[in-house]
């Protein structure tokens, strides 16, 4: 089912065309990453969905409804919005920040308090410790989590994120990305995320939209972006030197393993990607490994030769 439909959307500022006749659709419950260099129009495209930027031409539908048909504040309260540098209100506590949209929607106090506690727990922030703190008393990673929690407070079906992890250091960023994926799966939220980081796009996206100079160059699955780049620019952006490994990082080990064998000394968890499995086998010097499930019982096996074959260009 299509959640967001963008039809022939154009944005012009005077003579400059910032977004040029873009059409794309986003499936319900998926993560779409819009990626491009700065000035490519990626943020502008996203900001037209909740009308922070007025649409010059074209139409955008969210859940089948034209965004121009609803009052603008009503539209925005139904769509979660998280930005780089979190944008938390510095004069309000963490709890008050998270309660912003529920309060605008007129939820009663008990329901808001329950939701705030639930979200803080979900983001590994103990409500007793964090609810009454002010944003400046939190670390960068904690601020970012509160920013996403605030965006999800009113249980929106759609979440827009503008470089949400841009200000975080690499270690915290990886953790934040994994948390986002887990929560997105749990709620079934449709996510549109803007970034200039191609690795982030491959890590998070079910669908990747590559933009340059206001044009949408390609919008497809990460595998297709790697194997069938529609444009030299897309190829350049994905990088050619490690595309085998990038492709392998997209497939889980579970789907490529051979039947279980006995007598294998080395084991790998089935949750690993092919790339991580390869790296682990190189490191350990193993030619073949047993694959185990979360209970550590063997469910399959994988050989080095098979892994190398899987990484080959189709």
């Amino acid at each position: 089912m299509t959640m967001i439909e963008i039809r022939n959307v154009t944005k012009r500022y005077g003579a400059a065309t910032v977004v040029d006749n873009v059409s794309m659709s986003v499936e319900k419950g998926s993560v779409t990453v819009i990626v491009g260099t700065s000035g490519s129009g990626k943020s502008t495209l996203m900001r037209m969905i909740n009308r922070l930027v007025p649409i010059t031409e074209g139409e955008i539908f969210v859940a089948g409804q034209n965004v121009m048909d609803a009052p603008v504040t009503e539209l925005r309260r139904k769509i979660g919005y998280a930005i780089q540098g979190h944008g938390l209100f510095p004069h309000r506590t963490v709890a008050q920040n998270i309660a912003t949209v529920p309060q605008l929607l007129g939820w009663d106090g008990a329901r808001i308090a329950k939701r705030v506690d639930e979200l803080l727990g979900l983001f590994n922030l103990d409500p007793a410790t964090f609810a009454e703190k002010y944003p400046h008393q939190l670390s960068g990673g904690q601020q970012q989590r509160v920013g996403v929690a605030r965006a999800l407070a009113a249980e929106p079906e759609v979440l827009l994120m503008d470089e949400p992890f841009g200000a975080l250091d690499p270690v915290i960023r990886g953790k934040a990305q994994d948390d986002l994926l887990a929560i997105q799966k749990q709620f079934g939220t449709t996510v549109i995320l803007v970034t200039h980081d191609m690795d982030e796009a491959f890590h998070l996206g079910n669908q990747i939209a590559v933009m340059s100079g206001g044009k949408l160059l390609q919008c497809s699955t990460p595998e297709k972006i790697l194997t069938e780049p529609a444009d030299p620019f897309v190829q350049q952006l994905t990088g050619t030197s490690d595309r085998a490994l990038k492709l392998m990082s997209l497939s889980p080990l579970k789907e490529s393993m051979a039947p279980a064998k006995s007598g294998l000394g080395f084991t790998l968890p089935q949750s690993l990607s092919l790339r991580d499995a390869l790296a682990e086998m190189i490191w350990q010097g193993a030619d073949e490994a047993a694959v185990t499930d979360s209970a550590k019982s063997p469910v399959g096996s994988i050989s080095m030769a098979k892994l190398l074959e899987l990484g080959r260009k189709a």
């Binding site: 922070l52 504040t73 925005r76 919005y81 979190h86 944008g87 938390l88 209100f89 510095p90």
Partner: peptide, 11 residues
């Protein structure tokens, strides 16, 4: 960014 977040959330 604070103002942007506020507008984006529908204030």
């Amino acid at each position: 960014s604070v103002r942007d977040a506020a507008a984006g959330m529908g204030l």
